[in-house]
Design a protein around this nucleic acid. Structure first.
Lengths: 108, 108
DNA sequence: ACAAAAGATAAGCACATGCTTATGATTCGT
DNA sequence: ACGAATCATAAGCATGTGCTTATCTTTTGT
């Protein structure tokens, strides 16, 4: 999958408020579909569909344990988003820019 | 406008491929509606509507000069997006997280 | 083996969205 | 003053999207 396609899926996945809320919830810790359904005021299928979109975007992973399926944030899932934003870092702040340069030095 | 509303508008604005392409084009330099319409294979009203969405999200500014309206990237427009991403930087790599703390020390 | 639990998938529906064409509002050139 | 140029807005339409209920699959407990 090229970069543009990855950006598309990630931006699309995070554009929906419910989906972003689920992702933010997962960022605070692993959770099963049952648990997520309890927190948000939408049906279980709706949660599963959102999770499928997040997974397709590479933002989350799933792990089956018996009847339950636990979802968790994929560590480097947001990398395409980071890279896209970093491409326009010239418009942010000098501090982030310095962070970038420092990272490059440490990579060497 | 609270942070959540700003995130919503920005993610929504950048979720559409055409709109993101227009934004990326503006990132390479200021442009008028006429010029953008020439580059992208959509009608002028479509371009204007996309620009309105980008402007509503705080991502671009506009400047009128005679009959032409020039759009350009708003310097800190992506800050809400940066902040949102930074909030989950713990999932990128531990290295980045440590560097962030190091940078904070250096700021003092 | 059977029923319940947990989740994924299918079908359908109300609504949002991105595009078009048509038109309105300003501004420039002559 | 008048027509052309530039852009914004309105109206309409085809498609996409998020939600629901219903159902299927898999697994657990008894």
């Amino acid at each position: 999958m090229n970069a543009a396609a990855a950006e598309n899926k990630i931006f699309h996945a995070l554009a929906d408020p419910s989906r972003r809320a689920i992702f933010e919830s997962l960022a605070r810790g692993e959770a099963a579909v049952k648990g997520l359904t309890a927190r948000f005021d939408i049906s279980q299928p709706a949660v599963s569909q959102h999770l499928a979109a997040l997974k397709d975007a590479g933002l989350v992973n799933s792990r089956r344990e018996g009847r339950c399926v636990y979802y968790r944030v994929k560590p480097r899932g947001m990398k395409p988003l980071i890279d896209w934003v970093a491409h326009y870092r010239v418009f942010w702040s000098d501090r982030v820019d310095r962070l970038e340069r420092l990272l490059e030095k440490m990579d060497q």
